[in-house]
Amino acid sequence: MFDLDNTTERRHAPEPDLVPILDGLTSVIFFLLLSITFIGITKITVPPSTVSTASVSKDIPISGRIVAQLRGQTILVKMEWIGRHPGSFEESVPRGDALEKNEKLIDASAKLAEQFKAKFPDEKTIQIALSSNLNYQELISIMDGLRKDDRYEDLVLSSYTEAD
């Protein structure tokens, strides 16, 4: 028969409450994710440098320059250079609305930059000279064309007297 007067002692096994443990783990994971920084470790092997005698360069600098001139309602854009074999590329673009972004001017500048880059791949700098009657919008359009596809990042402004 069952003894109902004396209650049998039962061992209460402690049950871990999982919820706060999961909370804590989640916050630790979040901290780790936010504080992780991924660094790429690269190795550069530097071979011994070769010795060479220095000599004065006899090469004439290329000095690539883009010149834009207003001829009536047309903008003449010329990419010219000096060096041993001076030369130039030219494009003509209708001016249109002088105060609006000129897509044709951007495309013409990009085309000239592409041609110049193909001819002189080592040149990193281009000078820009606009005539005094062209405006800031047109300068920006030409710069956009030259910087297209990251061809030329270093652009140097030249005086308007060289274009006038």
């Binding site: 606009l130 009657n133 405006n135 800031y136 920006i140």
Partner: peptide, 25 residues
């Protein structure tokens, strides 16, 4: 946008002569 290149160049020239290294248009 309507500022002439002449004015812009003259302003930039003064800044460059004063020692500022680069112009951000």
């Amino acid at each position: 946008r309507s500022t002439s290149y002449k004015v812009l160049y003259n302003v930039v020239k003064i800044l460059r002569l004063s020692g500022f290294q680069s112009m951000l248009f």
